[in-house]
Design a protein around this nucleic acid. Structure first.
Lengths: 251, 251
DNA sequence: CCAATAGTGTCTGTAAGACAATATGGG
DNA sequence: CCCATATTGTCTTACAGACACTATTGG
């Protein structure tokens, strides 16, 4: 979130759109952050975001700020609204209402430095959140985990929990992989997001029994990985809900 | 949502808090509505709501507007944020960002006319939404179903779907009943919100096996209803999540 | 005794979880 | 052949759903 001083005779309340962009790199769940160039929280990492313009809707604002701050164009992933944060003093300068969004993305193009932020990069979520999934808050930041600017630690925690929950009952895991993909790749998405291990046999059975989750990739060709048997290829299916659901362990 | 003209040199964007208050009357899911006294949509029914004040958080704003417009004080129920609606032209007068909330309430005090609205009353949700759960939109309003003002039909549909979903995996159904309650009363909550019938034997088994959902009411006394066997009484349990979940039929 | 409601018991199909066994590719 | 990975098979336990049956009150 980047907030500049209110303009002349400006609004008593500012509306911004922030975005939690998640992807997977090296089997780790990572989030896109930008380093703040100006006070407050100068030098601290924050979520991309900025003011909502008069004639754009909230999702457009989130995507525009993402491009401006990180250079991440196009966004061939999944985007949804997360939650709105509006505590009176969440920004020390003025009242700021922030509509947070959640973006899920396959790991393809990496961010290059944008115009508004001095740096933009992906960072592992595990280094930013406490083990129990709570935000690395001011009281006890996780070891070597710098707390995020503003209430962005809380927003990140909410976004990660939303992603973890939606992997259970929606086909959103496929937003993290490029087509075509193997079931092993899809299974590694679940393992990275949930932070657990998933049995390969059970995952296969559940993924294929959930109608419309994935569909076989026409050539039925396989893709070898590292000396093993080539895996079948799949594409995203038409389902919007998973039946039956893929439940997280340890409930 | 009630929006008045912006003040002198007012903000370019207004922030309001609306609230979908649901309760159950005569085995029907009903929603609190207020009749608009002024244009636009004069005379149409709308959700309670209004401007967020500078030093209150979003939930406080929603509750304050609810009291002002409906006289419903205290609110001994459940309140949570629903979603934020910010399409550029959702209000014809100016840009309005509305943070919608969802309130669940036992049927106790009925609303009396408030100050800001000419009338406030509960209306059955089934008369306002199309059978498939979509909002009674402008193209084809359900028979004798007046469309709500602004995009409140969509907000209502989202709120009802949220309530239906959360009955599955959370103990929120207990927010609709007064303590102590019988399992039959709790079961009728599920039937009213889901619009389905629920087997009494299966409901009992599931409700009692979900740890922390309900706890026996000390006296272990029964309450007769209409000539039948007195039912055991229960109170809300400490659980925040239901294990196993109570799934809706017909998935 | 009858009506009405509360509560119990039983059976079946589906699915989760654990884990063994087999298949198929590359060195 | 050996290794690594993919894929199939099996068994156990849990639970949803349907429905028959018993229990307890008031009239």
């Amino acid at each position: 979130m980047t907030v500049s001083k209110a303009g002349s005779g400006g609004p008593s309340v500012a509306v911004t759109a922030d975005i939690v962009v998640l992807t997977i790199q090296s089997a780790q769940l990572v989030v896109m952050l930008v380093q703040r160039a100006n006070p407050p929280y100068q030098g601290r990492w924050a979520l991309p975001g900025g003011f909502v313009e008069p004639d754009e809707n909230l999702e457009q604002a989130a995507l525009r700020e993402l491009v401006e701050e990180t250079g991440l164009e196009g966004f061939p992933g999944h985007l949804e609204q997360l939650r709105t944060y509006g505590a009176p003093n969440r920004d020390p300068r003025m009242r700021v209402i922030s509509i947070a969004h959640l973006g899920l993305l396959a790991n393809l193009g990496l961010p290059r430095g944008g115009s508004d932020a001095s740096a933009a990069r992906f960072r592992p979520v595990a280094e930013l959140l406490a083990p129990d999934g709570q935000a690395a808050g001011t009281p006890t930041p996780a070891r070597n985990a710098p707390a995020l600017a503003f209430d962005h630690g809380e927003i990140l925690a909410d976004g990660v929990e939303r992603a973890r929950a939606k992997l259970e009952y929606s086909p959103l895991a496929t937003a993290f992989v490029e087509e075509p993909f193997t079931l092993a790749e899809l299974r590694r998405v679940y393992e990275a997001v949930w932070g657990t291990s998933v049995d390969t046999a059970d995952f296969r059975r559940q993924a294929l029994s959930a109608e419309g989750f994935v569909t076989p990739f026409p050539p039925a060709a396989g893709r070898g990985t590292e000396g093993g048997q080539p895996a079948d290829l799949y594409r995203r299916g038409p389902a919007r809900l998973l039946h039956p659901a893929m439940l997280r362990p340890a409930r």
